[in-house]
Design a protein around this nucleic acid. Sequence first.
RNA 1: GGCGGCGUAGCCAAGCGGUAAGGCAGCGGUCUGCAAAACCGUUAUUCGCCGGUUCGAAUCCGGCCGCCGCCUCCA
Length: 463
Amino acid sequence: MIYNTLSGRIEEFKPLEEGVVKLYTCGPTVYDYAHIGNFRSYVAEDLLKRFLKFLGYRVIHVMNITDVDDKTIAGARAEGISLKGFTAKYEKAFFEDIETLRLDKADYYPKATEHVEDMIKIIQGLLEKGYAYEKEGSIYFRISSFPEYGKLSKIKKEELKAGIRIDADEYEKEDVRDFALWKAKKPGEPSWPAPFGEGRPGWHIECSAMSMKYLGPTIDIHARGVDNIFPHHENEIAQSEAYTGKQFVRYWFHVQHLIVNGEKMSKSKGNFYTLRDLLSMGFSPRAIRYLLLTTHYRKVLNFTFDALYQATASLKRITDFLFELETRNFSDGQTEEARNMIEKTKKDFTAALLDDLNISGAIAAIFEMIHWGNKAMEGEKLKKKDAEQIKLLFYDLDRVLAILPEKIIEELPDEIMELIKKREEARKNRDFATADAIRDELFKKGIILEDTKEGTRWKIIKT
RNA sequence: GGCGGCGUAGCCAAGCGGUAAGGCAGCGGUCUGCAAAACCGUUAUUCGCCGGUUCGAAUCCGGCCGCCGCCUCCA
């Protein structure tokens, strides 16, 4: 069950081809470092994709890289370097960020500059069919030729006229609502040859071309932030469907925006954060992912540092639980109760996500498992096999969430281990002043010591 | 003005007609040399406000108030 912007309703999800999902997500325009608002979308899309895979679908995922447009051209010019040199830097940064946030890799990352041929082909086709026209070297899509224009954004094209601003370089259009497929060559701008004249592609056409090229005329899911509904996605539908005569996208998945402290994030307000900003402040990638992940994708996410601390603390409860499972001594055996609880957790988790990605319900299932498990451990009722099965469950569900640390138990350098030993000696001799001093010292280094019946154990503060 | 979304405890957040999940924070207790972790108890007679439908509404309908986004190639 998933919400489809096209119908405005929650619908049953059924891919065109059984067992296979064709997914296209609009990627970054590589002119700057991506900010957390961008990543809110990517993380939500990642949840969708990972969950589909979890359900057993084979997902073919394409994410485009926009490496030619007004902003990239302007950026390259400002730095006095080539367009390619300019975009390469941000493209590299983007892939690093993807890694940091554990976004599942797409199968293809096509670049606009490498698919100009494909775009030209479509534009040519649209010209031949009369959906497009040439004006002073540029090619525009004729909206009046596509009766269904507005079906996604529910905008009536007749009403679009009022108040619209006319770009200085575009006033030659037949109709102000028409959009550019191809922009005529301008001095100093990169351009490509085409049968209809040298120039560069418009923004909307790239998604259509690359989506069709890698996934065919009709795809299952197209995803991106809500602000792209109009005009970007609306235009994609128009040009694609006009060209192929087939439905372009079956399910439109739109992610709500992120705001910061109740306000729209913007550079002028000083509340603009890139992933890198947050990392340099010391927040862990997992906590950032957790925060972006755990608000339902159709709800505005109000980003605050308080929320980020809360995310960090929630995550700690999860990892502390796994730590217990890892370090406690359990007696052999397995219990029926644990088995039932594990089954229930998996069932509840899946059922929640099946309901239009109800992440809160899914997370609640995990915390209910944790509470049950902690309680069972408190009463020494959990057996060895139970603990193992619960761990397996958590790593199984983490295929969807991707929030668990790679290692639960950390290795410490020898000199630290020496200190821990020294402290244990001190404690044995009831020299608590020395013991506490060592504990404080290590805490400052990010190591937490905990004294249990089974001896002293340590954790590294990471989240 | 048009289109869309939201308003649930100090904070984050489920709920989709049957009597308020979950997380964070706080408070009291157990455990501990002290902590930490964990556990037990506690924190919304109430879901922006006002009406209506119903045996019964946070959930449905009407009105009002407040907030956010899009309608400009900003995700």
